[in-house]
Design a protein around this nucleic acid. Sequence first.
DNA 1: CGTGACATTGACGTTGGTCAACTACCGTGG
DNA 2: CCACGGTAGTTGACCAACGTCAATGTCACG
Lengths: 255, 255
Amino acid sequence: MHTSKDRHPPAAAGTRRVNYRYFGVEQSGTCGKCGARTLAFCAALDDLGLERLAAIRHDVRLDAGDELFDDGDAASDIYNLVSGCIRLFKLLPDGRRQVTGFVLPGEYFGMVTADRFPYAAEAVTESRACRFPRRGLEDVADRHPALQRRLLHMAWDEVTRMQGQILLLGRKTPQERIATFLLTLAQRYARIGVAASPLLLPMNRGDIADYLGLTVETVSRTFTRWRKMGLIELPRSSEILLRAPDELAELADAS
Amino acid sequence: MHTSKDRHPPAAAGTRRVNYRYFGVEQSGTCGKCGARTLAFCAALDDLGLERLAAIRHDVRLDAGDELFDDGDAASDIYNLVSGCIRLFKLLPDGRRQVTGFVLPGEYFGMVTADRFPYAAEAVTESRACRFPRRGLEDVADRHPALQRRLLHMAWDEVTRMQGQILLLGRKTPQERIATFLLTLAQRYARIGVAASPLLLPMNRGDIADYLGLTVETVSRTFTRWRKMGLIELPRSSEILLRAPDELAELADAS
DNA sequence: CGTGACATTGACGTTGGTCAACTACCGTGG
DNA sequence: CCACGGTAGTTGACCAACGTCAATGTCACG
């Protein structure tokens, strides 16, 4: 039952045709010139702290489809996304997949207290990230309360975001879920300075469906319906124009 | 559609008939004798830190059904549950409800960076909690890295727990959800030293349904089916005997 | 062009939600 | 002690929404 069985190619499948010129700013090896720095946790640090952080930092470059880590891998590192998009997901034994989140530039992921990751991470698009040994990062954090506090606040924000997702999955209709998804994505883009119209969908229909607890067919049909109603336009499958965001907002919260 | 419309009595409704002798240890006004201290975030503190924390701490006592705070209330405080059980939930405009979590002794809640709570909190049973002004708590945390780190780790654990719930809501069948719920509850009880057999259900069917994204009817029918299959016993509606935890575990992860 | 992955569309059926009745339980008051 | 009332829980009948299965369309790249 449900969906998403046998739908997971051996990773590193087809690169998606999306233009990511403006998707997360480039990083040039040094933290000083990193475009994500005003967003990421490193923003909390002074020069000394930044230096300490840079000393333990590793550069990670990923192509679309690349696996960062798998469910069950040793959780020794924490990642900070600089550009691109990462999907985090869990699998059930029979192959059903739940995407628990999409990571956008400036967000960190991989934070767990256990010694193994309880989920997997893959690049949705070409991406760049900083990798920090958890131990080392925590040492720096212990010496820089501002960083520690920043990490804490970002974790709290993540909890808040996930509560919204739990409401969505537990009680919203397919329409409401999809509308919420589009509007939330647009908001997140706005926060990181990415143009929100046309709205770029780095992830494919399968990712969206597995994120929203639906099937690709339901996502597809809903888009088609809205296109026919004039609420949206779909110049390409990875690009959406929100023609009537207000009506979508009503659908998202609906009575 | 869905469920849980008009199902929310004006709060402080009927007290639930559950024996909570063993449910969370009593606190006697001073942190030194608090039974939750080895579990809660205060465990990370030395005597000086504990003193500083005690200085800003307020005692909260709640009867079953009492509201702690509502969605939209000013989020000036953070709570640490000492005994009892709290439900956190969000409502949609038409009354659909999603319980985002049940708080057990030793866990903290109310952590948000925004200035308003994005969810409500009510006591499921008679409960006791510590209330700390967020500002004050963060000041203490800045001076005690061990506390700060502890708060961070507890937040990370919460994120991990919520990812499991997201998988449950997005991809598990009703059977799987309910089995997962029972087993997870038993595990959490074990952690805090509460007897797991018979398994006490402080919350009613409506709470369970709203937590699992189901209806009361589905929860009820599933219990009945399992009872007839000999997997569980229901001496009273708030008490469950897990006769075949292994089979339940299979149902929980199912193929 | 040809190929393969992704997306869309259609037909169909099952599952779990809806609605409604009934039962069990417990506390209260006569 | 029993009758009553109210709430929570259970059970049954019904049905529509969304998932399943399958075919077709589209697009990008070689």
